[in-house]
């Protein structure tokens, strides 16, 4: 497992995704593709077991990214988060019998956000930079646990069995990792 190093030239993913959404920019899409394809394939491979299905699911994910890019809103979050949710949903469709129900913002009974912050755009991108920094300060063991929870599509009880750990310990360590990340962001938020 390798962490992305800070000096690795990282393309401006959100800007590329916006270019694809607004102009069907194939060059921008190729840069996105070369960045995300191996990562999404690795995400799919944990479940697929064979590299052929992982490759197919990765291609489906990236084609969905191409087709739906105009729905990406950089004010709502990072490009990688948006692509993660597409990959996650395709993985559920491919490997699970049951569904993952979702709320519908157009539903009359939906309770909308109370405020729309004026500098939402700045905020979403700022949060993603801060989250990236906060992840780098987490102990490797907690990152590994988060990775199991997000990448292996394991229920927390399956992770507990696999690590030979009580379920309560898995939950409390995940909770700890989650609250550390949130605390790191809240601290930054207060100083800005």
């Amino acid at each position: 497992m390798r962490r992305t190093t800070e000096n690795e030239a990282k393309p401006d993913l959100a800007a590329l995704l916006v270019a694809v959404g607004e102009r069907r920019d194939l060059e921008a899409f190729e840069v996105l593709f070369r960045y995300f394809a191996p990562r999404v394939r690795a995400f799919m491979a944990r479940q697929a077991g064979d590299s052929h299905s992982a490759e197919e699911l990765m291609q489906e994910t990236m084609i969905a990214v191409w087709n739906k890019a105009d729905r990406f809103d950089p004010a709502k979050g990072a490009a990688s988060t948006w692509i993660f949710t597409i990959a996650r949903n395709l993985r559920i469709d491919a490997f699970r019998r049951d569904k993952r129900p979702e709320f519908d913002p157009n539903d009359p009974a939906f309770v909308p956000d109370d405020v729309a912050p004026a500098d939402e755009m700045f905020e979403a991108q700022e949060v993603s930079v801060q989250l990236h920094q906060a992840m780098a300060t987490l102990p490797e063991e907690q990152v590994a646990l988060l990775r199991l929870a997000f990448f292996e599509d394991n229920s927390h009880s399956a992770i507990a069995a696999r690590l030979n750990m009580p379920l309560g310990t898995v939950k409390s360590r995940l909770r700890l990792a989650f609250s550390k990340l949130r605390a790191a962001l809240d601290r930054k938020g207060e100083t800005s």
Partner: peptide, 17 residues
């Protein structure tokens, strides 16, 4: 949204080689 952001971060930091 924050938790999904962690998913996005993990995706970005996964082995791309």
């Amino acid at each position: 949204a924050f938790a999904e952001g962690i998913g996005g971060e993990l995706l970005e930091s996964s082995d791309a080689a």
